[in-house]
Nucleic acid binder design. Sequence first.
DNA 1: GAAATATACTAGGACGTCCAATGGTCCGCC
DNA 2: GGCGGACCATTGGACGTCCTAGTATATTTC
Lengths: 170, 170
Amino acid sequence: MGGPLPRDPIADAQRNWERRGWGEVAAPMAAITAVMRTQQILLGRIEEVLRPFGLTFARYELLALLGFARGGELPMSRASALLQVHPTSVTNAVDRLQDAGLVERSPHPTDGRTTLVGITAEGRALVERATAALNSGVFAQSGFTDDDVEQLIRVLHGFRRRAGDFTDDP
Amino acid sequence: MGGPLPRDPIADAQRNWERRGWGEVAAPMAAITAVMRTQQILLGRIEEVLRPFGLTFARYELLALLGFARGGELPMSRASALLQVHPTSVTNAVDRLQDAGLVERSPHPTDGRTTLVGITAEGRALVERATAALNSGVFAQSGFTDDDVEQLIRVLHGFRRRAGDFTDDP
DNA sequence: GAAATATACTAGGACGTCCAATGGTCCGCC
DNA sequence: GGCGGACCATTGGACGTCCTAGTATATTTC
């Protein structure tokens, strides 16, 4: 998509902000823009590793969540809440995973409104292999030092808690 | 999209990773997942602030870039490189901004392959107001402390440089 | 017990992103 | 001078995300 630039475009933007008299918010702007770009880079790497498995990150996340769930199944709404995405995104992902035979829908035994999603044996086998690939291909060579990882987890945990993602303290 | 959870789902995922014997990569996994979620939260806030202006973040970024460019115009390929997005994304954004009368396409004077995008007076006026709204509505209340911002900028700058985004040192 | 409200999922549409392929233009090299 | 490779922008398609609206089922309220 284009080779490296001679200068960091985000640092340039920060200087532009300061030059315009917005020095007060230039640093937060740069930090937020850097989060955006970092997410883009990481997502690109992840999708590249998952492509051979026929998975996208969204589908992988759902599959992995189900793999950890007791009984291997969850209500759609619960998956939406845990993955922090819109319910329609879950419907979309389940549609495609179901077409691939990796998950199955089933009615909730007592609540007629609820649909359960369960991982199939095939789904379980695939997510095992995909996880191994992600662990070795992305997470084990994340490009972050141990200190970086510790700081990111701490800073972003606090941010997400203040943003209302969850309520616990640790 | 759903209220706060009682527990941090990313911390839970990290524990699941450790329990499965992937402790070596559990922390980087959690850090990367936290970056993903943080980006999602921030993008949501930004889009919310920009909606009244009829702008999305992608279009705003292009407009802001042109506002800082000398002469208020850039080749499409240069915009793609600086914004670090695929050329087709720039084509898409320019199409819509042009329909709104905020930018204009013009042929490059000497290179017949390149198309220049220039911001219009109307575009300049709008991006001024949108920037003020973002500064006060998002960047000035980012949810990050000054220390957080300093650490994010440092850590993510290093990451992006190692990922090949740019080559300079600072 | 019936009406009003709340919850769960799905359908359709807008948007941004990327990829693969296309047609036009430039440039170095023979 | 021409020829082939490199570069530029666009088109068409796939995907994920969100929003709005709609249908069906539960729960609450009177």
